[in-house]
């Protein structure tokens, strides 16, 4: 359970970080909350020679918001800050819910939003809502910076597009559409400290009539190596008046689109079924919230 020997850096600015990652390359690892990294090091899955602690870098932390433009969340923002942010709760409810479900209070106090996406676990809590909310990430290196949708950033189980010398700096969340609502939920054995068997986020916007689905993002986690966008399911509802029958069809379609495996937490069959359950519940909740009807008939 011991860590290998490493050299530790605690830069104060983003520039210093980029210098360090540029110089040290793959021998270095970014240390954010450490809640994934240190475990992998203790289990000898990783033996970096250098750790670059980004917790002292103010420009990578915090949540800001500009009406009409959306929110910017620094990569090193703690999950607990997101969980307790009124702004996130009001504008990006699915993310607020997911943040509240990650690990335990202790883990949320340490873990960062960027760490959750960079670790790229298929069961991770926040990537599905972020993708559903249309989040983009900003990736930076000495050479410059680029923006890309989160679903393009995460490539597979513990795989991202991050190349040598690059770091993730922030998440850009667009202003939510009018008459829209987002919801998140997961299936797991316990109500805390649970690696999700399945999770899902739904972001649904209605036309002015309050009944027709204008846009929809349905993203499922833990049923594929990457956050999986339920394209078929979305297609069934977009442009249609929301109703139970279509909702059921969409739920079934999502279940077919899912590509789960069997492991210690659940069988593939159970996961597939749960995709439909989550889809039904989240679509209904999001529709109710977006249309202003009273919440919850489950």
């Amino acid at each position: 359970m011991y860590l290998n020997d490493f050299e530790y850096f605690a830069p104060k600015t983003c520039g210093e970080i980029l210098d360090l990652v540029g110089r040290l390359g793959t021998k270095a690892k970014i240390l954010a909350g450490g809640t994934d990294l240190l475990i992998m090091m203790k289990e000898k899955m990783l033996k970096p020679d250098y750790l670059i602690d980004i917790n002292d870098v103010q420009e990578l932390k915090g949540i800001s918001y500009e009406p009409g433009k959306g929110a910017v969340i620094g990569t090193a923002t703690k999950i607990s800050e997101i969980e307790h942010s009124d702004l996130i709760r009001e504008k990006y409810f699915a993310l607020s819910q997911a943040a509240g479900e990650l690990g335990s209070a202790q883990v949320r106090a340490m873990a960062t939003l960027g760490g959750n996406s960079c670790h790229a676990s298929p069961a991770a809590e926040t990537p599905p809502p972020l993708v559903a909310l249309g989040a983009k990430v900003v990736v930076k290196s000495i050479a410059g910076e680029k923006e890309l949708p989160l679903e393009e950033f995460i490539l597979g189980n513990r795989k991202t597009t991050l190349a040598e010398g690059e770091i993730l700096t922030k998440f850009l969340l667009p202003e939510p559409a009018p008459r829209s609502a987002s919801r998140y939920s997961y299936i797991g054995l316990r109500d805390a400290m649970e690696i999700d068997a399945v999770n899902m986020a739904v972001n649904l916007a209605l036309e002015d009539d309050g009944r027709t689905v204008k846009s929809l993002r349905m993203v499922m986690g833990s049923v594929s190596p990457v956050p999986l966008i339920a394209v078929e399911a979305q297609g069934i509802l977009i442009g249609q008046v929301f109703n139970q029958e279509l909702m059921e069809k969409a739920a079934q379609a999502a279940s077919v689109e899912a590509n789960p495996i069997s492991d210690i937490r659940a069988s593939a069959e159970y996961r597939r079924e749960m995709v439909a359950v989550l889809a039904r519940r989240l679509l209904q909740q999001a529709f109710n919230a977006a249309s202003g009807t009273k919440e919850g008939n489950w």
């Binding site: 335990s104 054995l189 316990r190 109500d191 805390a192 400290m193 690696i195 210690i264």
Partner: peptide, 11 residues
């Protein structure tokens, strides 16, 4: 104790 699931305070 991550994978061996003892009930938590939430349960």
């Amino acid at each position: 104790l991550h994978d061996y699931k003892v009930p938590t305070a939430m349960e």
